[in-house]
Design a protein around this nucleic acid. Sequence first.
RNA 1: UGUCCUAUGGUGUAAUUGGCAACACGUCUGAUUUUGGUUCAGAAGAGUUCAGGUUCGAUUCCUGAUAGGACAACCA
Length: 566
Amino acid sequence: MEDSNKQNPPQPHAGESKSLNFIEQIIEDDIRTEKYGKRVHTRFPPEPNGYLHIGHAKSICLNFGLAKKYGGKCNLRFDDTNPTKEDIEYVDSIKEDVKWLGFNWNGEYYASDYFETLYDYAVTLIKKGKAYVCDLPQEEIAATRGTVTTPGIISPFATRPIDENLHLFARMRAGDFADGSRVLRARIDMASPNMLLRDPILYRILHAEHHRTGNAWCIYPMYDFAHGQCDSIEHITHSICTLEFEVHRPLYEWFIKELDIYAPQQIEFARLNINYTVMSKRKLLSLVHEKVVNGWDDPRMPTICGLRRRGYTPEALQNFAEVISVAKRDNVIDVSLLEHCLREDLNKKAQRVMAVLNPIKLVLTNFADDAVEMLDAVNNPEDTSTGLRQVPFAKELFIDSDDFMEVPQHKFFRLSPGNEVRLKSAYIIRCNEVVKNADGSIKQLNCTYDANTRTGMPESNRKVKGTIHWVSVQHAVAIETRIYDKLFLPENPEAVADGEDFRSNLNPDSLKVTTSYAEPYIKNMKAGDKVQFERVGYFCVDADSTAQKPVLNKTVGLKGQWQKTL
RNA sequence: UGUCCUAUGGUGUAAUUGGCAACACGUCUGAUUUUGGUUCAGAAGAGUUCAGGUUCGAUUCCUGAUAGGACAACCA
């Protein structure tokens, strides 16, 4: 950590000299003072009530990353204390997503595995006179809690004798009472300025089937009574959570202290926000339920499975988490940073393929009618070990309509009448004639090619201003391209006016499906493969693909705005 | 009109025990390029929310404002 070499000047480009974030500083202090020996043990504790999204990815990378960096462990723990909202489907998807992100958990735990221990803890508190069974109805409890500026009123049941509390709590567990009729509360301080300390509820009665414990229980612990104790049981050293739990920390520590059990420490960080992105689980759930999107893994969703289907890679997401770092102040990350991380990774990996999204026909008038030339094309200029492939070249080609302008505007480098342009991996051509349909639209472009300009030919180094991509008409493979745009238009789609629905901010054009053409090589691609359509953008082969019709999801465009300035 | 947290270029994160603010993204130049991509070189952009104080010196310490956030679910 410390730089022992003080003689040498600092190295501005040294990759490994990154400074520590505040959590790493805490951990290194704790290691130094041996607060937990030299152990580092974190955990990722999702509630299985929805699919994981990119905000969770930040937390996953943080917790697992810290464990890895300091030679520690990280548990996967399901915070499954509310059977009414949770489901095994979510448990499975969470495991899949964490694994896909590239992490292996030290152990798989469930809060529900600790229900018996938690129950005993509650009994301990009752015996200490620190908890009581309260018969007040829900509305009464809310009303007597006071407000943020006025103290609450002590429950008439707060002074219930210990024996009676013990007896009643046992009967709660036994199922003698109806849902909502009684709760177990901690006796702390109804006048505390911290609302969470005003005799918080520990257990509620819920005659509901739990996805793991079935009907074994009809009382379930609340988050506050479960989370810290679970951390304690697992001997977690650093319990990292988001900022909204900051006010819970005194309570977290109160239970640990009163129970006199192993004490982990809770550390809070600011959750991830990304502009133009909805991140709240509740809203994502409603998008799925109301079929605004096609499921949790719709490529427009910020869910991990959605991003995966969109063509994001674990490496890109991990790098993103690294780059945004972690701190305690509220933040809104620009989507362009996320896209940057993705391009950085994809640029190195994606197979280059030529494709034409909106074709116009181009005829090489000086090319032999039935001739087909197989030309070599580079698979990936960033990785020469991927070699070459052959692309068929013939008299009739498709080029992208974007790559031709009858009246070129200023700084348009591509094809226009009388001008030359290079066909990627092939020849330099010149446009001689624009043939129109009766309605004035372009029917085809008549061009001539310069046979001396292919790679390896004498004039192959001749410079022309633009290079465009193309596909042979007779060899082209029809593909379905699904082009995605922002799901929400405003920068902060979660902030909606009172009485207005967040869905009013939806982008009606977030999905466009078109039929396009690609070179035959596209048929070699499998679901999940990433390609870069040269000069168009990155795409990912979707699982919906058939041999006849590959389906490609647009992952992200290339850098630069030139496409839009036409 | 309570308690707690936060405050650094457009955005995010840094700044060793106080020593005239660094990195990344974005933006803009230029070079290279058979992708307007990549790569490379460079530029602009903050004097650290404000006002006091301590100090030779404050983004770092103190005081007081201001702004934003969290908390009043038998959710997590």
